[in-house]
Design a protein around this nucleic acid. Structure first.
Lengths: 344, 344
DNA sequence: GATTTACTTGCCACCGGTGGCAAATTGGTT
DNA sequence: AACCAATTTGCCACCGGTGGCAAGTAAATC
């Protein structure tokens, strides 16, 4: 158990004061070139690395970021986490993960306490927690740095990264219409989430451009899980007259639709087109592979983390200049086709 | 932005010294009952919560645990992370995640530096990184608390949680044999990982009890990804005489086999039985749903975290008493069946 | 050469707790 | 009442850095 070198060791060996060493570490401008190189040499010889706790205590910085989320899809979380970590490790931050309950009464309190306890420099908030205005206000109020991921621009540019789910859903509508579908059903996510309503409205808007209107009984609400996907699909497919195409709010539910269709002997895409949203790993694994909307999750994570770190390092202007909006794109695979009997 | 109460505030208001407040916080025995209650009252009135950095600096504790892994399956990582976090939040720890490169030359250095930088109290190491003896030694050497997840008992009980993959694979062998399969292929994981060799050997051992021997050219090495699952499946299935059953080292590769079988018009399970290992979300989503081995990932995570925290809190004896071994179990679904033409 | 100006560097207090030890208090004995 | 042990509390140094300001040094100006 070798003892860790301290700033004093470096100072003594380099023959300077520890204040100067501190300056070198923090890249202060006012250090002479010769001094700087000398100190840097000693630092690398000693493999010295500053104690984050001491540093944090003195400067109220921790080089710790937090990731706040509520029970998201494992694949989505993983994508985000990878993206965030990539930026973190490049810029010398570590990431603390913090699941919480969006609908709990103590959400705000819980999150603030989390930040305070670990003295986080900032947090990234994932949907649906990101949709809580109470939390956002509390964060702003406590002077914390934060960035929210969302599908609507509900905050200042420096605090948010938005994916235009509405436009993407509209594109899916266009695609369905061009394949000749008119009997179309939609399995929505929970209506209390903005991401759900955005996608639904975008889809309806897109269809209306082709004069197509969703039948109210063909809009069914799931909760974004595979299991509810199955339930909703049963309602839509175990009937006399069924839709020729189903758009689900995410890939998990679309996978549920495939399962039900298969068990009912309905051929996809010949007799039924199915599409999802996300383009996570599952989408390409299932048979037939899902047509879906690719959400640029990784890109959002990168942007959010950059923004966050910029605003932490007191460069709010730069944080504002980082792009705040990304566009999901349509990915066509095997689960969708021209409607049977249509020729146009 | 309300300022946070400090230990001095509490001390002043309660009319005691801050050393006494510190004692109350840490549950020291030698505090009078009246004093204790008085201090506790003030603490809760002020909503005081100790500054972790200062605390850490003084006592070299951080209440931070680390999770070290290398590019695992997203679903596996998510399961582990959930389990770990559950225990963490109950016991007042936070979790810092740290991906790294198992095969990098700087692995050990990188991990130690990570622990040091953030002053972690301990780490949980996932496979395959957990198989690095160099890292384990370095951790032990540096006096760090750590627990490894693995499929072989390669460390003292207090440092490891093992899943008996070998026995589980043998059970799959038994199941295959009892279905009448003799023409069996195995898609292994990278042979440099113990988890891969354990499963392979267990499978072979299990088969040999029924007098079945794997043909050497029907043992193919993949790297646990869906993509290599596809490649391996092509090699096994695009030939004149093909196996009647394939066991893959994990669910991802098994999903690849399903895909190839489907594209070649081979019916699963009628013409080909397929099984995976893990029982992650994917296994039940694909069509047909995969027969697989359920790894008790969550349970392992819970055990590992408990062990770790016990050994941090200087209770090595207790850590040793936490069960160190868990048993994966066979889950039969739709992708396996009696071999065609067999009646026994 | 003296004075101003700009740039480097060092000193010391402080961040908010904990550890070791001494001091004060309590209660029991003789 | 004096003494002693056990319990409870307080004092002060210290953990390893950073901030503010003063001091020192070199270059620029007159």
């Amino acid at each position: 158990m070798q003892k860790q070198a301290t700033i004093n060791d470096v100072a003594r060996i380099a023959g300077v004061s520890k204040r100067t060493v501190s300056r070198v570490i923090n890249g202060s401008l006012s250090v002479g070139d010769t001094t700087r190189t000398r100190v840097e040499k000693v630092i690398s010889e000693l493999k010295y690395s500053p104690n984050t706790q001491a540093r944090g205590l003195a400067s109220s910085r921790s080089y710790l970021l937090g990731l706040i989320y509520d029970n998201p899809d494992a694949l989505y979380l993983d994508d985000v986490q990878r993206g965030v970590l990539e930026v973190c490790s490049n810029l010398g931050y570590e990431l603390v993960v913090h699941p919480c309950r969006y609908r709990s009464e103590t959400l705000v309190q819980d999150c603030l306490r989390f930040m305070q306890r670990s003295k986080l420099d900032g947090v990234i908030v994932l949907p649906p927690v990101s949709e809580s205005e109470t939390l956002a206000l509390a964060l702003k109020d406590s002077g914390s740095a934060y960035v929210r991921l969302s599908s609507v621009a509900l905050d200042e540019a420096k605090h948010i990264v938005v994916s235009d789910d509405r436009a993407a859903a509209a594109e899916m509508a266009r695609y369905f219409a061009q394949l000749g579908h008119e009997q179309i059903a939609f399995i929505s996510g929970p209506q209390r989430y903005k991401s759900s309503t955005e996608r639904m409205e975008g889809f309806q808007l897109g269809l209306s451009a082709y004069g197509i209107k969703l039948r109210p009984d063909w809009i069914i609400e799931g909760n974004n899980t595979y299991e509810t996907g199955i339930e909703c699909a049963r309602q839509l497919l175990q009937v006399e007259h069924r839709p020729t195409a189903i758009f689900a709010n995410n890939d998990q539910m679309a996978a549920g639709v495939l399962k039900v269709a298969h068990s009912l002997g309905i051929k996809v895409p010949e007799q039924l087109s199915v599409a999802g949203f996300d383009d996570n790993m599952l989408a390409s694994r299932v048979i037939p592979a899902l047509t879906t909307i690719k959400r640029p999750v990784r890109q959002m994570a990168l942007l959010a983390t950059s923004k966050l770190i910029m605003s932490i390092e007191n460069n709010d202007k730069a944080a504002n200049n980082v792009a705040a909006k990304v566009a999901p794109t349509l990915v066509v695979r095997e689960s969708t086709a021209r409607v049977a009997g249509s020729n146009d």
